[in-house]
Amino acid sequence: MIGFWISFIMICFVGIVQIFIPYLLKKTVVFGVTIPASHLEDQLVMQAKKIYSIAIASIWLLLLVGYSIWSILVIQSEDLQIIVGTAIMFLLMIISMLFYAYFHRKLRIKKQQHQWGADLTEVKVVDTSLREQDEMLPLSYFISLAFVPVILIIYTYFQYSLLPEQIPTHWGPNGEPDAFTEKNRFSVISLPLIMLIMQALFAALTEGTKRSGMKISVINREKSAHKQLVKRKYTSWFMFLTAFLITILFSFLQLTTIHHGIVGNGIMLTIFITFILVILIGSIIFSVKVSNLEEIGDHSSFSGGITDVDDDRYWKGGLFYFNKDDPSLFVEKRFGIGWTINFARPMGYLIVFVPIIIILFIGFFA
Results as ranks from 00 to 15, higher is better:
Val278Ser: 07
Ala203Phe: 04
Gly264Glu: 08
Phe202Lys: 05
Ile219Phe: 09
Gln228Arg: 07
Lys210Ser: 09
Lys210Asp: 04
Ser224Phe: 12
Phe286Glu: 07
Ile216Lys: 04
Phe272Tyr: 07
Leu205Cys: 15
Leu241Val: 05
Thr257Ser: 06
Leu249Glu: 02
Ile216His: 02
Ile284Leu: 11
Gln199Asp: 11
Leu229Cys: 04
Ser190Met: 14
Phe250Cys: 08
Ile197Glu: 06
Glu207Phe: 13
Gly261Trp: 09
Leu201Asn: 01
Thr235Gln: 13
Phe252His: 01
Val218Trp: 08
Gln199Val: 10
Phe286Ala: 08
Ala204Gln: 06
Ile219Glu: 06
Ile216Tyr: 04
Leu253Met: 14
Phe252Glu: 07
Ile262Asp: 00
Ala225Thr: 12
Met214Ile: 13
Lys231Val: 03
Leu245Asn: 10
Ala200Phe: 14
Asn265Met: 08
Ser190His: 04
Gln254Asp: 03
Gly208Glu: 10
Lys223Ala: 12
Leu277Val: 14
Thr242Tyr: 08
Met214Lys: 14
Asn184Glu: 08
Trp237Val: 09
Ser212Ala: 11
Leu245Ala: 07
Thr235Tyr: 15
His259Tyr: 15
Ser283Leu: 14
Ile194Gln: 04
Ile189Thr: 03
Ala243Phe: 13
His260Tyr: 09
Gly208Gln: 08
Gln254Ile: 02
Ala225Pro: 12
Leu253Glu: 03
Phe275Trp: 07
Glu222Trp: 03
Ile246Tyr: 08
Leu229Glu: 06
Phe244Ser: 07
Ile276Leu: 11
Ser190Tyr: 03
Val218Pro: 04
Gln254Tyr: 04
Val188Glu: 11
Phe275Leu: 08
Phe252Val: 10
Lys233Val: 01
Leu191Asn: 07
Met239Arg: 01
Phe186Val: 02
Thr270Phe: 10
Ser251Ile: 07
Gly282Asn: 02
Thr209Asp: 08
Met195Phe: 03
Gly213Tyr: 05
Met268Thr: 09
Asn265Tyr: 06
Ile248Asn: 00
Ser212Tyr: 08
Lys210Cys: 06
Met214Tyr: 12
Ile279Phe: 12
Phe240Tyr: 15
Ile281Val: 15
Phe272Glu: 00
Thr256Cys: 00
Phe240Lys: 09
Thr209Lys: 06
Leu196Gln: 04
Ser236Lys: 10
Leu253Gly: 03
Arg221Val: 12
Ile189Val: 15
Thr247Pro: 07
Ile258Val: 09
Phe275Lys: 02
Arg211Cys: 01
Val188Lys: 12
Ile246Cys: 14
His260Pro: 03
Lys227His: 07
Leu229Trp: 10
Phe240Ser: 09
Gly266His: 12
Phe272Cys: 01
Lys227Tyr: 05
Leu269Arg: 06
Ile279Tyr: 02
Thr206Ser: 15
Ser251Gln: 09
Ser283Val: 04
Lys210Gly: 10
Phe286Lys: 06
Ser283Asn: 14
